[in-house]
Amino acid sequence: MEFMILSNQPIAKSVYKMVLAGDTRGIKAGQFVELALPGRFLRRPISVCDWTENTLTLIYKVVGVGTEDMTQMQEGVKLDVLTALGNGYDLDRAGDAPVLIGGGVGVPPMYGLARELCRRGIIPTILLGFNTIDEVFYEAQFLALGCTVYVATADGSYGTKGFVTDVLREENLTPSYYYTCGPLPMLRAVANATVCSGEASFEERMGCGFGACMGCTILTTQGHKRVCKDGPVFQKEEIEWQS
């Protein structure tokens, strides 16, 4: 589909928020989109942060030439977008006290999920992990939903010093279910630190984004599965958590 950029602004160190206008039918919390960038062969996969009937909010971090190109895109630019990719989170498993855990650019999909849970009358607890205070974003937006929010920074410059698993332990949180997105070491640590079941969204590098190239496979209890097509969300018990 064709989307038009409404805004594209920095919100933290090397982190940008892009709002697009277009058809968002079918999008669910935890899914992602693939953007075609001018002059670049491969599309860029970006997690969905939030959406309305006709707007799509994406938050991305500058990690290479493609995302660097994105920072220069101005209002009014039109992009070719593959939407509603992947399976998303299962909200029916949340229970009455879910915890949502986002690390770095794994934070954005937690916002759309939190908003959807709040619409159901389920107010989740939010754990956000960053390296340093300069990278912190969207704390205020989660608070505005009515959520309890904890922030951890690896260097201790803001919130709890350490990792999201330190917050779980220090605050003695006992979630009914957890949802998470972030780097693999964090996903593994969260799985090991929780007694309850949960779902993790993986951030594997993707070539095609719709299951053809097999470049984003991970090992599960049912064999290798594609993050783009079979995921990006997998249940905790599905994953072979290799060290």
Rank of each mutant, 00 (worst) to 15 (best):
G64A: 11
M214C: 04
T217D: 10
T160E: 15
Y60F: 10
P124F: 02
T132E: 13
T24D: 13
T153K: 03
A21S: 14
Q222N: 12
C196P: 00
S201K: 13
I11A: 11
F234P: 10
L184D: 14
A212D: 09
A140V: 00
Y158K: 12
T160P: 00
E203N: 09
L91K: 03
I133F: 11
T221G: 00
A97L: 08
G223L: 00
I126E: 03
V15C: 03
D155C: 04
K225S: 04
D80I: 02
Y179F: 04
S47T: 15
V227F: 01
I46P: 04
P183G: 01
R226E: 15
Y179G: 05
R120I: 13
E68I: 06
V233W: 00
V99Q: 09
L20F: 02
V149H: 10
I126K: 03
K28T: 06
K78T: 10
G104W: 15
M18L: 11
E199S: 07
T55W: 05
Q72I: 01
P183L: 00
E199K: 06
S157L: 02
A152I: 02
G129K: 08
G39I: 00
R44H: 08
L173W: 13
Y111S: 10
M214Y: 13
T148N: 09
K28V: 13
V65T: 07
E170N: 07
S197M: 12
M214N: 09
F32Y: 13
P10Y: 14
L20C: 04
I59M: 09
D90I: 09
G102A: 06
G39D: 07
T24P: 00
M1C: 02
A36T: 04
L20T: 05
D134P: 05
V233R: 00
Q242S: 10
A191Q: 12
V151L: 09
F130L: 07
F137W: 15
I122G: 06
R25W: 13
A21K: 08
C216W: 08
Q31E: 11
G156A: 08
T180Q: 15
